[in-house]
Design a protein around this nucleic acid. Sequence first.
DNA 1: CACAAAATAACCAAAAGTTAACCATAATTT
DNA 2: AAATTATGGTTAACTTTTGGTTATTTTGTG
Lengths: 252, 252
Amino acid sequence: MLKVERLDEIKEYIKKNVTVSLDELVSVFGVSKNTIRRDVDILVKSGEFSKIYGGVSVNRSTIIPFQDRSIQNQSAKQQIAKQAASYVEDGDIIFIDSGTTTVEMFHFMKHKEVTVITNNMDFVIAALPFENLNVFSTGGMLERKTKSLTSIHNKEIIKGYNINKAFLASSGISLKNGVTNSLPVESYLKACVVEKSDEVFLLVDHHKFDKYSLTTYCSLEQIDYLLTDKQPAIPYLEFLKKHDISLMVTGK
Amino acid sequence: MLKVERLDEIKEYIKKNVTVSLDELVSVFGVSKNTIRRDVDILVKSGEFSKIYGGVSVNRSTIIPFQDRSIQNQSAKQQIAKQAASYVEDGDIIFIDSGTTTVEMFHFMKHKEVTVITNNMDFVIAALPFENLNVFSTGGMLERKTKSLTSIHNKEIIKGYNINKAFLASSGISLKNGVTNSLPVESYLKACVVEKSDEVFLLVDHHKFDKYSLTTYCSLEQIDYLLTDKQPAIPYLEFLKKHDISLMVTGK
DNA sequence: CACAAAATAACCAAAAGTTAACCATAATTT
DNA sequence: AAATTATGGTTAACTTTTGGTTATTTTGTG
């Protein structure tokens, strides 16, 4: 077998099995471990895969990160996302924030006819095959940790768009500090979105309550819908009622 | 069998099998390895195929997945891209245009330490695993045909960046109409880039000469380097010389 | 924390493939 | 018939690929 053929097959094999040991590749392809090691080196350098001790794995960033990730509260996040997506209607112009909860909304709305504005790279990539989605990327510097794009120009850009519904995430909310986020430049964008959007949906699982991080991008009374997975504490309930904010609890 | 007939059949055979070893061709066509070697040489030089160790393979674009491997002149484009990428140095701030030629530059620069500004979605996706690349996406509406992002805000955004070298594509160039592009909103962005960039590189294969499409985004004298795969006609050579534009021809 | 097992990196040498040259012969063209 | 072209065989220097060996690093376990 030619080397390139073997490399192609190894690629396919890894993609199929997500992670494989070098020993497994040795026995499947019948070449020495030395050769497998060199082949894996080539694949890793191409950027599609990454080396792990004793084996090789598909690159986390190239795979669409939905469903199969071992994130905390995955099913809770999916339920919140599903609930949020149910508010999306054909013809809407919506904003989708970056974040593990908001990005899960994709699956529950990918067949709707909507215009999506987002700072989320995963969402844009996932949306490529779905021509029913009219996608606007905010642009800016690629933030690899959150796979989001951030830019100082985001304010003018967002101002130019008319947003119907905004679906936002937060790394922590509290009555005192409002809705917070750890990256200042991202907070700036989110604040602009809150201002421009007719309706603001905040998606936060119950771990996010009474936490806060570096910057506050809006106060709690600016949101219209709060979606979470567990009934919040009494002070929150009173606050929500007082400010006429709809609460959606998806937990069982 | 005539030589040209055999060449045609070898072409078909390689296309059908994607990659074949020389030994296989020897036994299938019943000629000596020497002849096969000479035949393969001819096919490789024609640009449709590439030589691999022990065999020959159809040209494949490395970052764009298999499906649309039907891109014309793939190897010419790759050679132009390689030449262009050789101008990229560590520390540069470069702009990469959308287009099948420019996107191939990715491979030849993915390990360099550069800041990349681009409207090209493929480039951003491909760059995800390479943390040495500082990536800025221009943002805007997702144009699925060209996998590019376009926005009316591009002008302000580009103005905010200082660009070292710009690598641009065109759907057609001519002495009369300059450098042209089919999408007006994309042309607008390109025109801004030409203005802002210290050095402008234009990557066009020889088919693009004496063609033009809807909009002109800059005149020919505004570019600094013209990279192509075949020696252009005399009037172009005179024009280039007169305006002190460097010409790089990659074809042999 | 130390130890053993596993994985890795760095060499080396053998095997296979490549390139380029040369020549003789056969086929084709002029 | 002469000249040109295509083919096959051969050789030699060179490069790529591969598998084996050994030292070094990483990991898991008691």
